[in-house]
């Protein structure tokens, strides 16, 4: 690969394939690294907690590592189900810090989840930023203090809207060098 790493997107369960296509297109235009959609689909059911009716995010990460990604590859799963971590009510996504896999869900990113009208464009933008955010964690990036950086912590979906779809100048160099300048806005 030209940039030394590439991204593999994995569809989780019943997520519409069109979401993956749009996401791949958005990511490819920003990253200038190869972005592939995996042919296989990850079954979320083994991660289902029947009592909470939510899916354990760390369990999905475990499953994403089987088989392990090739060296240099990043693998991000995209789900439509509600994710959680033990002790937390929910998470938008999670990733291995300085690892290779991550998962993001659009379940709580949908504007109608917080009572707003449906908005496909806004949802697409939020999902793109959430995937970039989890991708950043796989490169060892922690939350950024600049509120407009895509690595800023987002506790609410509305916070994601306030961020750019870019890494700030401090975060970008932590990604593979060949893509860093491409990613800076």
């Amino acid at each position: 690969m030209a940039s030394g790493w590439w991204l593999e997107l994995v569809r989780v369960g019943a997520l519409p394939p069109s979401v993956m296509v749009d996401l791949r297109e958005d990511l490819a235009s920003l990253l200038h690294s190869e972005v592939q959609i995996s042919a296989s689909v990850l079954d979320p059911d083994p991660a289902l907690d029947l009592e909470r009716r939510q899916y354990l995010a760390t369990e999905l990460l475990e499953r994403l590592l089987d088989p392990p990604p090739a060296p240099g590859a990043r693998r991000i799963a995209v789900a439509a189900v509600d994710l959680f971590l033990p002790v937390f009510t929910h998470v938008f996504g999670t990733a291995q810090l300085d690892g290779q896999v991550g998962v993001a869900s659009l379940f709580r990113l949908r504007p109608e989840f917080s009572g707003a009208p449906q908005d496909a464009g806004r949802l697409r933008g939020r999902l793109l930023k959430e995937v970039l955010h989890e991708l950043g964690h796989t490169f060892g990036l922690v939350h950024c203090r600049l509120p407009w950086c895509v690595m800023a912590a987002s506790r609410l979906p509305e916070h994601i809207d306030l961020k750019d779809s870019h890494f700030c100048g401090a975060c970008a160099p932590h990604l593979a060098p060949s893509c860093a300048t491409e990613v800076i806005s």
């Binding site: 760390t58 971590l85 033990p86 002790v87 937390f88 810090l97 939350h143």
Partner: peptide, 11 residues
Amino acid sequence: ESLSHWFAEDG
């Protein structure tokens, strides 16, 4: 693990 992972992401 959940909590340490969460706060590690926060730096």
